[in-house]
Simulated assay, not measured.
Amino acid sequence: MRSNQAHDAISTRLFDGLAYLGVLPFVIGIVMAYADFRFAGIDGRLWFTAYSSVILSFLCGVWWGGALNRLDHSHRLALMLLSNVVCLIGWCALLFYRFPFSLPVLAASYLFVERAEARLKPNLPYFAGYFESRSRVTYLVVFCHLVMIGVLWR
């Protein structure tokens, strides 16, 4: 039993570390936008919005996977439908990345995913610590969106 608990703790630390490391590309996009720097023709705004849309889609994929793997989940249909809707919203935000509504829509989508996840609980209880970290990272990502909005409209 003890080795199982240690394995869960190690796994949670890995997930936590990857979640916090995942904020770095948002910061890179902010710095690129602030410095008006382009990399291979990609400006900071596109970098940031594309990465944000990809991560949002990844989070929705977690819901999709949860729905596929938990046939007994009471909110299975909601997870499947919401994962698609939020993913499409992220895709539209990417398509219209030059429009002022794109970043606020993405930020709101992250908050929606975090709140819905807390309510729907798509994963097993032993990930509770991970989802606490995910909530903190979500708020950090939303803050990055607000900073990027400030940088773009300075």
Rank of each mutant, 00 (worst) to 15 (best):
His75Met: 09
Pro125Asn: 01
Phe96Gly: 05
Tyr130Ile: 09
Val85Ala: 13
Val105Ile: 08
Lys121His: 13
Cys87Thr: 08
Leu95Thr: 06
Trp63Phe: 15
Val86Arg: 03
Val137Tyr: 02
Ala118His: 07
Cys92Glu: 13
Phe131Pro: 06
Asp72Pro: 01
Tyr139Val: 05
Tyr97Cys: 10
Arg119Gly: 03
Tyr139Asn: 12
Leu103Met: 09
Phe101Asp: 03
Trp91Tyr: 09
Leu68Asp: 00
Ala93Cys: 11
Met80Trp: 15
Ser83Ile: 09
Met80Tyr: 14
Leu88Met: 14
Leu81Met: 07
Arg136Pro: 06
Asn84Trp: 15
Pro104Leu: 05
Leu59Ser: 00
Arg98Trp: 09
Ala93Trp: 04
Tyr126Gly: 03
Val113Gln: 04
Cys87Leu: 11
Cys92His: 09
Ser102Tyr: 07
Arg115Phe: 10
Leu79Tyr: 14
Lys121Thr: 06
Ala118Asn: 10
Pro100Gly: 05
Pro104Phe: 00
Leu82Phe: 09
Val105Ala: 11
Ser109Met: 02
Val62Arg: 01
Leu95Arg: 08
Cys87Lys: 04
Leu71Gln: 14
Glu114Val: 05
Leu79Pro: 14
Leu81Ile: 14
Ala93Gln: 03
Phe99Asp: 10
Lys121Asp: 00
Ser74Gly: 06
Leu81Arg: 12
Arg98Leu: 06
Phe99Gln: 15
Leu111Ala: 07
Val85Pro: 07
Pro100Gln: 02
Cys92Ile: 14
Gly61Phe: 11
Arg119Ile: 06
Ser133Lys: 04
Leu81Asn: 01
Arg119Thr: 11
Phe127His: 00
Asn84Leu: 13
Ser83Tyr: 01
Phe96Lys: 06
Gly90Cys: 01
Ala78Gly: 12
Leu82His: 07
Leu81Pro: 06
Phe58Ala: 04
Val105Gln: 00
Leu95Phe: 11
Ala67Ser: 13
Gly66Leu: 00
Pro104Thr: 08
Val113Met: 02
Ser109Thr: 05
Asn84Gly: 15
Glu132Val: 14
Ser133Thr: 12
Ser135Lys: 13
Ala93Thr: 03
Arg134Glu: 03
Pro104Gln: 05
Phe96Arg: 09
Ala107Cys: 02
Cys92Ser: 08
Leu71Arg: 14
Leu106His: 08
Glu117His: 08
Asn69Glu: 09
Tyr97Asn: 13
Ser74Thr: 14
Met80Cys: 14
Gly65Arg: 12
Ala78Asp: 13
Arg134Leu: 05
Pro125Cys: 07
Ala67Gln: 02
Arg70Cys: 02
Gly61Met: 01
Pro100Ala: 05
Ala78Met: 15
Ala78Trp: 15
Lys121Glu: 01
His75Gly: 07
Leu81Tyr: 07
Tyr130Trp: 08
Lys121Ile: 07
Arg119Ala: 10
Asp72Thr: 11
Ala108Tyr: 02
Trp64Met: 11
Pro100Met: 00
Arg115Pro: 03
Ser74Phe: 15
Leu124Ser: 09
Arg134Gln: 06
Met80Phe: 15
Tyr110Val: 04
Val113Ala: 12
Leu79Thr: 11
Ala108Asp: 05
Leu124Arg: 10
Val85Asp: 06
Tyr97Pro: 05
Leu124Met: 08
Arg136Gly: 05
Leu68Met: 13
Val86Gly: 01
Phe99Gly: 02
Leu111Arg: 01
Gly65Met: 11
Leu71Trp: 14
Arg70Val: 04
Leu88His: 01
Asn84Cys: 06
Tyr130Met: 07
Met80Ser: 13
Gly61Ser: 12
Asn69Lys: 12
Glu132Lys: 09
Arg76Gly: 10
Asn123Trp: 14
